[in-house]
Amino acid sequence: MNIVVLVKQVPDSGLARQLDAQLRVDRNGANNVMGELDEYAVEAALQLKEAHGGEVTVLTLGPGQATETVRKVLAMGADKAVHIEDDAVGGSDALTTSAILAAALGRLEWDLVVAGAESTDSGMGVMPQLLAARTGAPALTGARKIDIAERTVTVEHQRANGYDVLSANLPAIVSVWDTINTPRYPSLKGIMAAKRKPVETLALADLGVSEAGPAAARNEVLSAAERPPRAAGQIVADEGQGGDALADFLAAEKFI
């Protein structure tokens, strides 16, 4: 079974992040990491390969430094990579990104695409459904569990108050939450082996995509500002009275 795993390099969500002068995500800092949920997608893809055989191809669209993320996925155990890199991509909207990724998927042989449920920078959580619309493959999103039997994929789609069991025939697109597994770390052996694994770099022209970037975008960002801080609150130290003081505050605010 051939699996494509979609990963996106993003600024580390635990550190300060900002937009650049063009109001795009600033990707020039040193704090770029693999999309945090994409690590779970990689782990899911590797486990499915271990159970069912086949190859795992990592597909990413991103600037030159995204190679680091690609290398990490290869070190975790993926077999090969396709990295789409083109200066014309910057400033694209999600619909354009989906058109580019769909064009790349059109060149690959796959039974299953695994993605994160959402990226941790723009965090739209729409790419798997956009790709379903563009490729015609079914999308089973937000999985906390994936099973494959014969040519059928079954997932538990996580909801706030339970889950739905979804199933579809392959080829299919699946996206995963962080409840699905515990991602592995690349081993030293994996890191060495990754250096010899093939990485194909493609530009938009290779994919026959001509419209990208801000001119093709269907939305524009007008302005950005830091969220105004909340007004400073009252902080008290507990010296034996903290619970009573808390109850007084709750009463004054009419919660009791």
Binding site: P229, R230, A231, G233, Q234, I235, V236, A237, D238, G242, G243, D244, A245, L246, A247, F249, L250
Partner: peptide, 17 residues
């Protein structure tokens, strides 16, 4: 970001509250 905060052990503060 708290409007009201208690610096203390939650096992002391919450039972009293």
């Amino acid at each position: 970001m708290a409007d009201y905060g208690v610096v203390g052990d939650l096992f002391q503060v919450l039972p009293q509250a």
